[in-house]
Structures are given as structure tokens and as C-alpha cells.
Nucleic acid binder design. Structure first.
Length: 259
DNA sequence: GCGACAG
DNA sequence: ATCTTGTCGC
């Protein structure tokens, strides 16, 4: 599933990570325009354990028309890099790529949980993921990383340009009446206009795209199901036995793999 | 120099 | 990201 793009190279330190971004940024396709009527759309998200030393990455593939989940995969592992704003992708990419590798279908579009072009070096997670997979990708951030903008009108579909250093790097988009807007930017092989259309098409009811929501639920569940055995509990404690039941490694229809 | 800073 | 209590609204 990962094939088709540039090989992923894990950086050893911050200096190397910065070099990788500077080198790859020019290879991003900012023309697109990308699929206008994709058959499938994938959502990607990562959940962390409280300790912060474990994470689960999930990919869900949805029928773009019905938004029903048609495929999904998870990968459990450890953060691959320290969290540094701007270098965030190196932390989650290995796990996300492992999950993508386990899909049985190659999605037509990737909707990422994080920014694309709206990044200090114009190479956020969505760009990196698009380039490595070779797939069209969009970045949808819940909070800003860079840029200035005006508040969009309160109606769903309203937007204002997100600007940084004199250039438009994305759009601040209202996906639902009266809710906090999201930050949409191009990842790879997509036009900004089409990216916004695809985000709205995958956001029929809630603030975030259904793709992101299904992936979010999946990785959270994987983190719980794959957790080490719980400490001994009292026999008659209903709450304790309930939590054990939930954490018990039972049925698992999703392809999960430890990294 | 000081603060901000995707998840 | 994750930890958190209540609260407002459909």
C-alpha cells in the first residue's frame, strides 16, 4: 500500500529532520487538482497511551458516497520521534505507514489529522504522507500551527484564507453552523478548492470529517484492547470487572500489528 | 529577547 | 496527544 511514492527515511535528529523536509518540499504536487469524485476516502489518526510511550495508528477507508467504512487497519508501536512542532510527522509516520500497508484496498484520497502546506516549511504531515504513498492528500488541522486569518461567517461552508508570509497556505473552514472552524490545507496532488470540497463532502454532521472520526475511534480502541493485563482486582467490584472485560483481548476483526 | 508552537 | 466536571442543547 505504501508503494508509489518516495521511500520514507526516519531522521536521527532534528537537524536531519529539517534537511529531509527541505529536500522533499519541492517534490510536492501543488497543482492537483485531485479526484473530484473519489470512490474511497481514507482517514488517518493516532492515539497515545497516557504514559506517552505507546501509540496506535489507524486508517479507515470509507465509501466516499455513503461514508460507510469498507476497510480498516491498525498498527501499535512507539512514537518514532520527540514531539517538536513542525517536525510532528516524524513522530507518527512510521506507525501510519505500517497501518496503510495492511489495507487491502488502495484509497483514492487521504484525509490527514494535521496540516499539509500550512506548515513553517510548507511540508506538514499531509504533504509527507501524500509524497510517500503517492496518493492525493489533504491536511485538516483542529488548531492552527502558522498563519493569520479572519473569522469565517458562522454558516457551514463559510471560509477565509489562511495566510502566512504573504501567501495563502490554506483555508479556515466552517464545517458546521456555529462551531469552531478547522484548518484545511493541501497535502499532495490536490488543489485547495478541491480539498475544501472533499472535506465538506466527508463532513455531513460533525465538526470533523467522518474519516477522521472513524480512524480516531479505531486507534483508541486498539490502544485499549492491546493493553497489557490489568492488575489483580477485587472479585465483587462491578466496575473493575467491567473494565477488565473491555480490556480483554477478545474478537478483533481489524488487522492489527505490533511494530 | 520573549512568546507561540499540528498531535 | 492525554488528564478532567459540569454544562448547554437537540
Amino acid at each position: 500500500m505504501t508503494g508509489g511514492g518516495v521511500p520514507y527515511r526516519p531522521p536521527a535528529d532534528v537537524a536531519e529532520a529539517l534537511r529531509v523536509q527541505e529536500e522533499l518540499r519541492s517534490r510536492v504536487d501543488l497543482v492537483g487538482p485531485g479526484p473530484t469524485a473519489p470512490a474511497t476516502v481514507a482517514g488517518l489518526d493516532v492515539a497515545y497511551a497516557e504514559s506517552g510511550d505507546r501509540l496506535a495508528a489507524a486508517v479507515t477507508v470509507l465509501d466516499a458516497a455513503t461514508l460507510a467504512v469498507v476497510d480498516e487497519a491498525v498498527s501499535v508501536g512507539r512514537p518514532a520521534f520527540d514531539y517538536v512542532p513542525g517536525l510532528f510527522a516524524f513522530r507518527e509516520l512510521p506507525a501510519l505507514l505500517a497501518a496503510l500497508d495492511r489495507l487491502t484496498v488502495r484509497p483514492d484520497l487521504l484525509i490527514c489529522d494535521g496540516h499539509g502546506l500550512a506548515h513553517p516549511r510548507r511540508f506538514g504531515l499531509a504533504c509527507h504522507l501524500g509524497l510517500v504513498t503517492g496518493l492525493p492528500s489533504i491536511g485538516v488541522g483542529k488548531t492552527p500551527l502558522i498563519g493569520v486569518w479572519d473569522e469565517p461567517a458562522p454558516e457551514r461552508g463559510a471560509w477565509t484564507p489562511l495566510r502566512d508570509g504573504g501567501e495563502v497556505v490554506g483555508r479556515v473552514l466552517r464545517t458546521r453552523d456555529g462551531v469552531k472552524p478547522v484548518f484545511v490545507s493541501v497535502g499532495h496532488r490536490m488543489s485547495l478548492e478541491n480539498a475544501v470540497d472533499r472535506v465538506l463532502a466527508s463532513t455531513p454532521r460533525y465538526r470533523l470529517p467522518e474519516t477522521t472520526r472513524t480512524a480516531d475511534r479505531l486507534c483508541r480502541m486498539a490502544l485499549t484492547e492491546d493493553r497489557p493485563a490489568a492488575a489483580p482486582t477485587d472479585e465483587g467490584d462491578p466496575a473493575a470487572s467491567a473494565s477488565q472485560r473491555a480490556a480483554a483481548p477478545g474478537r478483533r476483526r481489524t488487522r492489527t500489528r505490533r511494530m
